[in-house]
Protein backbone atom coordinates (compact mmCIF):
# COMPACT_ATOMS: atom_id res chain seq x y z
CA UNK A 1 0.00 0.00 0.00
CA UNK A 2 1.10 3.54 -0.70
CA UNK A 3 2.24 5.61 2.26
CA UNK A 4 -0.23 8.15 3.54
CA UNK A 5 2.43 10.85 3.65
CA UNK A 6 5.31 11.45 1.28
CA UNK A 7 8.08 13.75 2.57
CA UNK A 8 11.15 14.26 0.41
CA UNK A 9 14.07 16.53 -0.36
CA UNK A 10 15.33 15.77 -3.83
CA UNK A 11 17.72 17.07 -6.47
CA UNK A 12 15.07 17.32 -9.14
CA UNK A 13 11.27 17.42 -9.02
CA UNK A 14 9.15 15.46 -11.47
CA UNK A 15 5.71 17.07 -11.23
CA UNK A 16 4.03 14.18 -13.07
CA UNK A 17 4.69 11.94 -10.07
CA UNK A 18 2.40 13.68 -7.62
CA UNK A 19 -1.00 12.65 -8.95
CA UNK A 20 -0.17 8.99 -8.47
CA UNK A 21 1.01 9.70 -4.95
CA UNK A 22 -2.12 11.65 -3.98
CA UNK A 23 -4.82 9.66 -5.73
CA UNK A 24 -6.87 7.46 -3.42
CA UNK A 25 -10.12 5.56 -3.85
CA UNK A 26 -11.76 7.60 -1.07
CA UNK A 27 -10.59 10.93 -2.50
CA UNK A 28 -12.86 12.95 -4.74
CA UNK A 29 -10.43 15.85 -4.86
CA UNK A 30 -6.70 16.30 -5.31
CA UNK A 31 -5.12 19.71 -4.80
CA UNK A 32 -1.50 20.47 -5.67
CA UNK A 33 0.69 23.54 -5.44
CA UNK A 34 3.88 23.71 -7.51
CA UNK A 35 6.37 26.50 -6.87
CA UNK A 36 8.76 27.34 -9.68
CA UNK A 37 11.62 29.71 -10.46
CA UNK A 38 10.32 33.12 -11.54
CA UNK A 39 12.42 35.21 -13.90
CA UNK A 40 11.83 38.61 -12.32
CA UNK A 41 12.07 39.80 -8.70
CA UNK A 42 11.19 43.49 -8.30
CA UNK A 43 12.05 44.11 -11.95
CA UNK A 44 15.46 42.47 -11.64
CA UNK A 45 16.19 39.52 -13.85
CA UNK A 46 16.97 36.31 -11.98
CA UNK A 47 19.36 33.90 -13.72
CA UNK A 48 18.77 31.01 -11.31
CA UNK A 49 17.95 30.13 -7.73
CA UNK A 50 20.17 28.07 -5.52
CA UNK A 51 18.64 26.15 -2.60
CA UNK A 52 20.34 24.60 0.36
CA UNK A 53 18.93 22.85 3.39
CA UNK A 54 19.62 21.45 6.82
CA UNK A 55 18.20 18.18 5.64
CA UNK A 56 17.69 16.23 8.88
CA UNK A 57 15.76 19.12 10.39
CA UNK A 58 13.90 20.00 7.20
CA UNK A 59 12.52 16.47 6.88
CA UNK A 60 11.38 16.57 10.52
CA UNK A 61 9.68 19.94 10.08
CA UNK A 62 7.99 18.81 6.86
CA UNK A 63 6.69 15.68 8.63
CA UNK A 64 5.29 17.88 11.44
CA UNK A 65 3.47 20.03 8.87
CA UNK A 66 1.95 16.93 7.26
CA UNK A 67 0.83 15.71 10.70
CA UNK A 68 -0.65 19.10 11.59
CA UNK A 69 -2.59 19.17 8.30
CA UNK A 70 -3.90 15.67 8.93
CA UNK A 71 -5.14 16.80 12.36
CA UNK A 72 -6.93 19.84 10.94
CA UNK A 73 -8.52 18.18 7.92
CA UNK A 74 -9.50 14.65 6.94
CA UNK A 75 -6.92 13.84 4.29
CA UNK A 76 -6.23 10.58 2.51
CA UNK A 77 -2.80 11.51 1.15
CA UNK A 78 -0.28 14.30 1.75
CA UNK A 79 2.87 15.14 -0.22
CA UNK A 80 5.60 17.65 0.63
CA UNK A 81 8.63 17.62 -1.66
CA UNK A 82 11.31 20.27 -2.06
CA UNK A 83 14.23 20.41 -4.45
CA UNK A 84 17.71 21.67 -3.56
CA UNK A 85 20.65 22.77 -5.69
CA UNK A 86 20.70 25.19 -8.60
CA UNK A 87 17.40 25.70 -10.43
CA UNK A 88 16.87 27.56 -13.69
CA UNK A 89 13.94 29.82 -14.60
CA UNK A 90 10.76 27.77 -15.04
CA UNK A 91 11.98 24.74 -13.11
CA UNK A 92 9.80 23.38 -10.29
CA UNK A 93 11.35 23.77 -6.83
CA UNK A 94 8.58 22.67 -4.50
CA UNK A 95 5.46 20.56 -4.78
CA UNK A 96 2.91 20.06 -2.01
CA UNK A 97 -0.54 18.58 -2.14
CA UNK A 98 -3.31 16.70 -0.42
CA UNK A 99 -6.27 14.59 -1.37
CA UNK A 100 -9.57 14.31 0.43
CA UNK A 101 -13.16 13.15 -0.02
CA UNK A 102 -14.34 16.65 -1.01
CA UNK A 103 -12.47 19.62 -2.41
CA UNK A 104 -12.72 22.08 0.50
CA UNK A 105 -10.41 20.08 2.75
CA UNK A 106 -7.68 19.59 0.16
CA UNK A 107 -7.77 23.22 -1.05
CA UNK A 108 -7.38 24.51 2.51
CA UNK A 109 -4.78 21.90 3.42
CA UNK A 110 -2.71 22.65 0.31
CA UNK A 111 -2.49 26.35 1.20
CA UNK A 112 -1.55 25.47 4.78
CA UNK A 113 1.16 23.09 3.57
CA UNK A 114 2.97 25.62 1.39
CA UNK A 115 2.48 28.59 3.76
CA UNK A 116 3.80 26.67 6.76
CA UNK A 117 6.66 25.17 4.76
CA UNK A 118 7.79 28.65 3.78
CA UNK A 119 7.61 29.81 7.40
CA UNK A 120 9.34 26.98 9.21
CA UNK A 121 11.30 24.54 7.09
CA UNK A 122 15.07 25.17 7.14
CA UNK A 123 15.65 25.67 3.44
CA UNK A 124 17.44 28.73 2.08
CA UNK A 125 17.19 30.29 -1.34
CA UNK A 126 19.79 32.46 -3.04
CA UNK A 127 18.75 34.57 -6.00
CA UNK A 128 21.47 34.70 -8.61
CA UNK A 129 21.37 37.87 -10.70
CA UNK A 130 23.75 38.84 -13.47
CA UNK A 131 26.19 40.69 -11.23
CA UNK A 132 25.33 39.61 -7.69
CA UNK A 133 23.60 37.00 -5.59
CA UNK A 134 21.33 37.53 -2.59
CA UNK A 135 20.01 35.24 0.18
CA UNK A 136 16.26 35.83 0.08
CA UNK A 137 14.66 37.43 3.20
CA UNK A 138 17.93 37.33 5.12
CA UNK A 139 18.02 41.03 6.02
CA UNK A 140 15.19 43.51 6.63
Amino acid sequence: MKQKTTIEIVDQIDVSQVYGELSHPHSGGVCVFVGSVREFTQNEQVMALEFETYKAMALKEMAKIADAASQKWTLNRVVLRHAIGKKEVGEPVVVVGASSAHRDACFEACRFLIDTLKERVPIWKKEIFKNKSVWVSATP
Partner: peptide
Amino acid sequence: NSEYAEDGQSLKQGDEIALIPPVSGG
Protein backbone atom coordinates in the same frame (compact mmCIF):
# COMPACT_ATOMS: atom_id res chain seq x y z
CA ASN B 1 19.17 18.21 17.79
CA SER B 2 17.32 19.35 14.65
CA GLU B 3 14.42 21.02 16.52
CA TYR B 4 13.82 24.75 16.96
CA ALA B 5 15.02 25.72 20.45
CA GLU B 6 13.89 28.49 22.81
CA ASP B 7 16.41 31.00 24.18
CA GLY B 8 16.31 29.47 27.64
CA GLN B 9 17.14 25.95 26.52
CA SER B 10 20.45 24.65 27.86
CA LEU B 11 23.13 23.15 25.66
CA LYS B 12 25.22 20.14 26.46
CA GLN B 13 28.21 18.43 24.95
CA GLY B 14 27.15 16.16 22.11
CA ASP B 15 24.07 18.18 21.10
CA GLU B 16 23.79 18.88 17.38
CA ILE B 17 23.53 22.65 17.22
CA ALA B 18 22.74 24.82 14.21
CA LEU B 19 22.17 28.50 13.52
CA ILE B 20 18.99 29.03 11.49
CA PRO B 21 18.97 32.36 9.64
CA PRO B 22 15.65 33.48 8.07
CA VAL B 23 14.34 30.55 6.04
CA SER B 24 13.27 31.08 2.44
CA GLY B 25 12.14 27.78 0.99
CA GLY B 26 9.36 27.38 -1.53
